[in-house]
Simulated scan of single mutants.
Amino acid sequence: MAARKKDGARPGGADPLAEYRSKRDHRRTPEPVPADGPLPRGDDDTFVVQEHHARSLHWDLRLERGGVLVSWAVPKGIPTAPDADRLAVRTEDHPLDYAAFHGEIPRGEYGAGTMTIWDRGVYETEKWSDREVKVVLHGSRVSGRYALFRTRGENWMIHRMDPPADPDAEPLPEAPRPMPAAERARLPRDQDAYGFEFDWGGRRLLASIEGGRTRFTDARGRAVAGPAGLGGPLGRAVGARPVLLDGELARVDGRETYLIFDVLHLDGRPLLDLPYERRRRALDGLRLTGPRWQTAPWFPGDGDAVLAAAREQGLPGVLAKRLDSPYRPGEDNDAWRRIPVR
């Protein structure tokens, strides 16, 4: 990154926004494309992080400096702990107006996709050189001391220098095992104590999602490749939140679909000890519905109707899950029951 004079110009008088303008046509994109001319003067203290759903999901960190927004694309998001350095790719400088931009960049244009403001605030500069930048960010979602250091070419790394933003946060488990259901011939008598789901007859898959990237494990806790076209879009739909989902891959209306029926870990907090009913309501709150995935429905206290609907739809059975049951990975117990359609 070339050093800048106070007015934002590069050595030799080069226009710092020339590359930005060359990649955009103001008649085709809603992004701000300022005319050539003197750069505005700011206080070099504004930052913004934008979530960019482009060809691949990433987060753009932009720091106001010398009349432009110096920018890095961070594929896995801003780290929240000092033990998780992440790649940050230096991109072209952006105009200051871009700090307020959100919207849809049309297909066929550079950076096509949805841009939203993930966080913004002010920052202080501790060091700024061609190879290293140290700043203190003050935002609503990200705060603390960060260092960006150049590794090779346009590749940099971003490192959190402060202790973890959430000291109690726990990482996603490496090899999660799903909770099995016991086979039973009949519905439970006390149906009001249970939630009921359809058994779709699919393949059990757990999805660990972090930094917009998805990793699948099977019923034995082994890492497996997910179906083509599922992991990437699902990760982009979840975004920056770390989450562990339980579900099954089944055919619905002739299309292979990931049906999600439980959430086991969310935002650094394991949910295994929460009752099933609270986990299901937390899952519903995530609103995970897409072209290849959906949150499976559940029905508290109405097993007879669910079983009749499963029979009518040609499904193999239903699952009865106690509303107060915790999640016990790999552990057989009677809290979850599978009842086949007869």
Results as ranks from 00 to 15, higher is better:
244 L>Y: 02
231 G>V: 00
270 P>E: 02
248 E>R: 05
240 A>N: 07
232 G>M: 11
256 E>C: 07
254 G>A: 09
252 V>H: 11
256 E>L: 12
236 R>W: 12
261 F>V: 03
262 D>Y: 13
268 G>Y: 09
266 L>G: 09
260 I>R: 10
246 D>K: 09
226 G>M: 05
238 V>W: 14
231 G>A: 00
236 R>L: 06
269 R>V: 08
250 A>I: 02
232 G>R: 15
256 E>A: 12
251 R>N: 00
272 L>K: 14
234 L>T: 05
244 L>W: 04
259 L>E: 11
244 L>M: 01
274 L>A: 13
251 R>D: 00
230 L>D: 04
230 L>W: 13
233 P>H: 14
260 I>Y: 06
227 P>L: 03
247 G>I: 07
259 L>H: 08
223 A>Q: 08
223 A>H: 05
224 V>A: 02
261 F>N: 13
239 G>V: 15
272 L>N: 15
235 G>T: 04
221 G>T: 05
272 L>Y: 15
269 R>E: 10
255 R>S: 01
232 G>F: 04
234 L>E: 02
249 L>A: 03
242 P>W: 12
274 L>K: 12
265 H>N: 06
243 V>M: 03
230 L>E: 04
241 R>S: 12
235 G>V: 03
262 D>F: 04
233 P>T: 15
237 A>G: 04
221 G>H: 02
258 Y>K: 01
225 A>K: 14
261 F>R: 07
253 D>I: 01
267 D>F: 10
250 A>G: 01
248 E>V: 08
256 E>M: 06
252 V>S: 11
248 E>M: 06
222 R>H: 15
251 R>H: 06
259 L>V: 05
271 L>N: 02
268 G>H: 05
274 L>G: 08
226 G>S: 10
227 P>G: 00
244 L>A: 01
261 F>K: 05
267 D>I: 12
252 V>F: 02
238 V>H: 13
264 L>C: 04
222 R>N: 13
233 P>Y: 14
247 G>Y: 11
266 L>M: 14
248 E>G: 08
228 A>R: 15
266 L>E: 14
228 A>Q: 10
264 L>Y: 06
270 P>Y: 07
251 R>L: 00
230 L>I: 07
235 G>H: 02
238 V>R: 12
262 D>T: 03
263 V>A: 06
242 P>V: 13
239 G>L: 13
238 V>A: 12
256 E>G: 07
250 A>T: 05
269 R>I: 08
265 H>F: 03
268 G>F: 12
257 T>D: 09
223 A>W: 05
271 L>F: 00
221 G>W: 02
273 D>Q: 15
253 D>S: 06
258 Y>P: 00
224 V>W: 02
224 V>I: 10
256 E>D: 13
240 A>W: 10
268 G>N: 09
254 G>V: 10
237 A>W: 09
243 V>C: 05
237 A>S: 14
237 A>C: 08
250 A>Y: 04
266 L>C: 12
240 A>Y: 06
243 V>H: 06
247 G>L: 12
259 L>W: 10
228 A>F: 13
268 G>L: 08
263 V>E: 01
241 R>D: 09
